[in-house]
Every structure is written in C-alpha cells, then in structure tokens.
C-alpha cells in the first residue's frame, strides 16, 4: 500500500479553450512557465478561424515552457471538417519535436506509429478501445468527461502497462461541438462573417434558462457547462486509482491561483477541505462533480 499512498499525480494544464488576444496568451504562458504545473497542452482546439496565434507562435511558447522544465504537448482541433484544417493538423503532427494530443480520430490516424496522447474528445469508453489505441502508439489518454469514477477504476485495472491516465479535475466541461457558431448566432452574425466575436468573451458567453439558472457556456462552435467541474476533494481517490496526471483547464481569471490550490493540496501543504472555499470563489458559475459520481454532470455532490 505504500506505493499507492505515495503515488503523486503530476499537474497538467489543458489548452486554452477560448479566444484570447495574442498578447494575453503570451503573458499567460510567461506566468505559467514559473507555475507548479508539469505538463502544458498548447494550441487551438475549438475553431480553426481563430488566428491570433500561428503554429510558429505556439512553437515559440513551447520552447520557453520546455526551457522552464515543462513537458509540452501540442493539442489539436476537436472537430475537423475542411481540408485546410487537415493541412494544419498534418503540420502539427509532423512537428518533429513535441508530442501531440489527438482530439479527433483523424489526428489519431496521422499519429499512428509515434507516441501520442488522446484528449477527452476522443471516445475511449472501454479497455478494448484503450488497448487498440495503445497498439497504435498511444502513451497517455484523458478520461472522457462524462465517465464515472467506477468506470475509471475498471479502466485502470484493465489498462495496458505503460499507458498513462489523465483526468480533468477542474474546469468548465466541454459538452458539444457543432458546425454552427453559437457565439456568432448570439450576436446575430453569420458564421462566415463572425467578426471573430468570441474574442469578446474570454470565459465564453453564459446561456441561462428562462428562470435565470446559469446552464451552458457558448464558446464559438463549442458548448461548455456553465458550472465548473471540481474534483479537488477526490484527490485521495485519484491517487488510489494511480492516475498519472490531473488536468486543470485555463480560465480568464485566477488560473494561477487554481493551480496553486491543487499544488498545495498535492504536496500536503493544505488539506482539500481547507482549500475548497478559495477554489469555490474562483468558479464563474459554481461547481459540479455529478459525472464522477454517476449522476447528471451538473450535479454538485462535494461539500464546499
């Protein structure tokens, strides 16, 4: 049991899901270079029209982070439709230096034969799928966000040796992708003339129900949960399940504070119950953890 007790997951920072101005992205990662995260995922995963940063810009950031001792992974689009998107995907997959996170089976196809990561938008729902991806070169997978702790436990028991598991522990939940841009729709703009308006919403645009409950977040072609998933109180369980890394998703404000909370709890400087009030105050629309427990994703079962 000593091994289990001492098992220490690494901290990972997911890609920025929103459209931030170039300078803001660069400043953000300058700060991240000294933050206590071990793995950093970089790149545009939502919309290929977003062009504040080009691949070269991302590679420059990757270089800085690598020099700062971070493991850098280049993330890719979740929804690939146009040839122009495939062309850019091939450039990323053939970068020759950094590991790549596939967020669509099309990317997996291009990465077969080299060591790659699959993100949470690739449907790895069972050990058979995990094993066959491992045979293609998969080295790490991220638990799909609607799966439960019980399924994770089964997957961990059955996973091929050498495969790392990552779990998203903090962030708004990606729920859907579409050909349609809901942010442009909200602004009454057609998608082909969207004015890149999602740059106005660094945390996405909240959609509420007619009785004023914050429900979803519109982030271009992606729909997210309004509530933030929070598995801080599950750290002991994540250790017990031998999860290699835990992922925090960037948000417009407080990302460094959030990283710090998880870091402090991981190294035992703070207990999760001590840290939980602070963490709660960083969430734009409150927290949830229903998926982890087998309920509706939006349910909140943890104590705060």
């Amino acid at each position: 049991m000593t091994d289990v007790a001492s098992h220490q997951p690494r901290l990972a920072l997911g890609p920025i899901a929103y459209y931030w101005p170039r300078a803001r992205v660069q400043d953000f990662y300058t700060q991240i270079s000294t933050a206590p995260v071990d793995i950093v995922y970089l790149g545009e995963t939502v919309c290929s029209k977003r062009n504040e940063l080009r691949l070269d810009d991302w590679l420059a950031i990757a270089e800085t982070l690598t020099a700062a001792g971070k493991e850098v992974v280049l993330s890719t689009l979740a929804l690939l439709e146009a040839e122009s998107e495939l062309i850019r995907l091939r450039e990323i997959c053939n970068n020759g230096r950094y590991r790549v996170e596939a967020n669509d089976m099309g990317a997996v196809q291009l990465l077969r034969g080299q060591a790659f990561v699959v993100g949470h938008s690739v449907n790895v729902y069972n050990d058979r799928t995990l094993a066959l991806l491992a045979r293609q070169g998969l080295m790490r997978w991220v638990l799909p966000v609607e799966l439960t702790a019980a399924t994770l436990a089964d997957m961990q028991r059955l996973r091929p040796s050498g495969i790392e598991t990552e779990v998203v522990v903090y962030g708004r939940i990606p729920l859907a992708y579409s050909a349609r841009c809901f942010t442009a729709r909200a602004r009454n703009l057609p998608k082909d003339d969207c004015h890149y308006c999602c740059i106005d919403y660094p945390d996405g645009l909240v959609l509420t129900t007619q009785d004023n409950q914050g429900f979803l977040v519109l982030n271009g072609i992606q729909t997210q949960s309004a509530r933030t998933v929070n598995l801080l109180s599950e750290l002991p369980r994540l250790r017990e399940l031998q999860v290699e890394s835990i992922r925090i998703q960037p948000q417009a404000e407080h990302t460094l504070d959030i990283i710090d909370v998880f870091h402090q709890c991981l190294i035992g400087e703070q207990t999760t119950s001590e840290a939980s009030a602070a963490l709660e105050s960083f969430m734009p629309t409150g927290g949830c953890d229903g998926y982890w427990h087998g309920g509706a994703g939006m349910e909140k079962r943890y104590e705060s």
Binding site: V145, E146, L175, A176, T223
Partner: peptide, 12 residues
Amino acid sequence: VMVEGRCILSSY
C-alpha cells in the same frame, strides 16, 4: 446540430 457521438448535453 452538434456533431454526433461527441455531444453530452443530455447527460449533463
């Protein structure tokens, strides 16, 4: 309207 197989609005 969402890409099928990767929409979990319902389970949320």
